[in-house]
Structure formats: structure tokens, C-alpha cells
Nucleic acid binder design. Structure first.
Lengths: 209, 209
DNA sequence: GACAAATTCAAACAGTCGTTTCATACTATC
DNA sequence: GATAGTATGAAACGACTGTTTGAATTTGTC
């Protein structure tokens, strides 16, 4: 009774999350994962059907809540500003912060894993990723063009890609570089700085011309 | 006599370049590569010692000339402006263009491969990459702080990372997104647009505050 | 406690991987 | 033309991969 059947599933997801981040999604073996989860090798195929099934589940469990929060924040902001426009900086913050919060989540491997998922080209990941991101991209694009009326749709799309690239590069940043950003000693502050830096950099880029 | 011993080496490098881009650096197998190069399976170990040796050689052959051109361009620009400062936009262009030129190189897989090398975390790639990039980063950082005097070293480093991220995201851009950027029909023009877009976006970000 | 469903387990399957071996072919130099 | 050095060839090695099997065990229900 202490361990309902769902527990093995979640131990597997946790172990896979860590192994994917440390070794790479394709490189991490089921034997490594199941050993870390203290589960049997066959458990992955039993619970998720295949390794791809496990990958998809890890991906959705990770980015699902992040994107849900993004959508919620945009809706709240648009409601708050009624029929006035949402300031660009605030809009960007609602897109970037849910991801950057992962730095302070206590699970320090998460930012790396998010970056890995974004750059993974295998069909299992790419298709799931596209499906999960599609509504968020659409929502933010139209909000963006309201916040910066001079923006054409092509430019909004392209600069959105630039912003995502800058964000992902931040997620996979070398810890040494990260150390540069904090007064030393504190460990949760630099992320806020990172968010501000990213917002001002991108906002300036979005507004140009 | 028609085929000196160096030819197999280069066929292997070419085949590896393509396979690494298409399938991933770790995922591409030596059997796939040697078959495409019409060489024997053992040829890789004979010419490069190991798969890691092949990877390192492909990496250096690819990014070596790019970074050499970057350094040359900065030197030329600084000579041209004598003791005056190099305009920020021009400086960024000297950093970005050598990479973006790969879109027009006729080898359409190269941008993807550059992106893969940047995000690869295996020691063989990460160490070689760091060694190759180090002089370029140092050179551009100090030039950057001359072009934008208000910039602190931490900000210059961080915003440099943002720019690299935006560049890499552009390199791995979905062809569908790329199609949005051109009037249709032409195939070499959109890259120039991409360069201009990237330069203005980043220049605005670098200058802010 | 008996029954049925869900879960775990050890073991093996078939396949792929990078690497090595050693024999064969080529290519220069004398 | 024999010889040394370079390159290619077919084949096998051992180690790993994801997946499957079928029996053993645990779990929830009556």
C-alpha cells in the first residue's frame, strides 16, 4: 500500500529526465535509466510501450506545465490591460519566465534537458515538440504584433526565433559563465538577472525600426 | 596515380559531414559513413585513429576557416578605422556573416551541422569546440567593448551568448520558416536578409541602456 | 482464502556499434 | 624487378542496444 503502481512509472520518468539531461536523449540507455530508478529493464516497455514512448512522456510532463503557465499569463495580462495593449517587456517576460524559473526549481538538470529537447531532431521528439509548442507560438505571435504594431508577421516570426535561440543558449550556459552574473554567495538571484537581461535585449531587438 | 592516398581521407570527411548533419554526430554509424564514402569500414580507424578522431577532424575542417575569416575581418576592420572605433553593426556583421555564408555554399547541410557541433556535449566535441572558439571570443569581446563603451564585461559576455543563440537557432531553422523570408523563386537571397535581420536585432540589444 | 488482473522479474533475442586482426593489394624507391 | 611502406580488404571480436518472452509475484475484489 505504501507504493501504489504509479510510483514505478514516476521513478522511471524522474530517472529518465536526469539521464536524458546528463547523457543525451538518444545516448541514455534503458539499462542506465531502469537501474537508477531501481526498476526492472522491462519496466519501460511495460509502462510506456517503447523508449520513444518514455521520451514523449518525459517531454510532455516537462514542457506541458511550462506552456500552460505561458498561456495563462498571457490571458491574465490581456485581461488586466483590457483593450489596451500589453507592454512588450511584460509580454516577453510572460514567455521567458516560466522556462527560466526552472533554474530555481532545485532540479538543476532541467534547463539542460529543455535545451536538448529543443535541438533533438528525431521524429518522436520533433513531432511532440511541434504539437506542444504550436498553440503557444500562435498566441504569442498575435500578442506580439499587438504590442509592437509596426511589426510585420515575417519579422515577428523571425525575431521570435532569435529570442528562442537566445533563451535556449541561456539554458545550456556554462556554469562558469553563470557565475559571472551573480555577486557570489547567493544562488537563486542570478536567474532574475538573467531574465531581466534577456527581456531588455530582446525587447530592444523587437522594437527596432 | 589518379587517386593519391589523401583522396579516401577526404571522401570520408565529406561523407561524415553529411551523415553527421543528417543523423546526428553520435548517431551516425561508421558503417553508414564508410559505405557512403565507398571505403572500407576499417578506413576510419586507419586514417583517424577512432570515431572521435574523425569527429574532431570534421569539426576543425569546418569551423577552422570560418573562424580564421572572422579574425581576418576584425583585423581588417580595425585597420580600416585606424584608432577610431568600428561601428557596432559592422563588427557584428564580421562575426555573423562567415557562418551565415554557409547557407549559400551549395552544401545545404552545413548550417545544421554547425548547430549540432555547438550543442554537442560529448568531450571530444566540446573540448575541440572550446579550443577553436576561444581566440575568436576573446577578440570579439574586446572589440565589442570598444564599439559600445557603456558595456560592462559581464553584459558583453552575456549578450554575446544571446547573439550566438540567435545565430544558432537561425542555422537550424525549419526550411518552412525560411521560405517565409523570401519572395519565392529565388534561393540565395534570403540569407542576406537573414544577416541584416540578425545584425539589426542584436545591435539594438547590445546598445540598450 | 480464492480468483483475476496488474506488475515485476530474470533471461534471452536479434541487431548494431566501434574496434581489431591479419592477409592482400598497391605504390613508391632503389 | 625485388623490397619496404602505405593503404585497402573481409571477417570477426566483444560489448552494447531496445525489445520480447514467459514465469513468478504482488495487488485489488469478491
Amino acid at each position: 500500500m505504501a507504493t501504489p503502481p504509479a510510483e514505478t512509472r514516476e521513478r522511471l520518468l524522474d530517472a529518465a529526465e536526469l539521464a536524458f539531461a546528463q547523457e543525451g536523449i538518444q545516448q541514455a540507455s534503458l539499462r542506465t535509466i531502469t537501474a537508477a530508478a531501481q526498476a526492472n529493464l522491462a519496466a519501460v516497455n511495460y509502462h510506456f510501450g517503447s523508449k520513444d514512448g518514455l521520451i514523449r512522456e518525459v517531454l510532455q510532463r516537462l514542457v506541458g506545465p511550462i506552456n500552460a503557465e505561458r498561456l495563462q499569463r498571457v490571458s491574465d495580462a490581456e485581461a488586466k490591460y483590457a483593450d489596451k495593449i500589453v507592454p512588450l517587456e511584460e509580454l516577453l517576460r510572460h514567455f521567458l519566465e516560466p522556462t527560466l524559473q526552472m533554474f530555481a526549481s532545485g532540479r538543476s538538470h532541467i534547463p539542460t534537458l529543455i535545451s536538448r529537447f529543443h535541438h533533438e531532431t528525431s521524429p518522436a521528439v520533433a513531432e511532440t515538440m511541434a504539437a506542444v509548442l504550436e498553440p503557444v507560438v500562435g498566441r504569442f505571435l498575435q500578442a506580439l504584433m499587438r504590442s509592437v504594431p509596426s511589426l510585420t508577421i515575417e519579422r515577428a516570426l523571425l525575431r521570435g526565433q532569435f529570442m528562442v535561440g537566445a533563451l535556449l543558449e541561456t539554458l545550456s550556459l556554462n556554469p562558469e559563465v553563470l557565475k559571472l552574473m551573480q555577486p557570489a554567495g547567493v544562488d537563486s538571484l542570478p536567474r532574475l538577472n538573467m531574465l531581466d537581461e534577456l527581456v531588455t535585449f530582446c525587447a530592444a531587438g523587437f522594437r527596432h525600426e
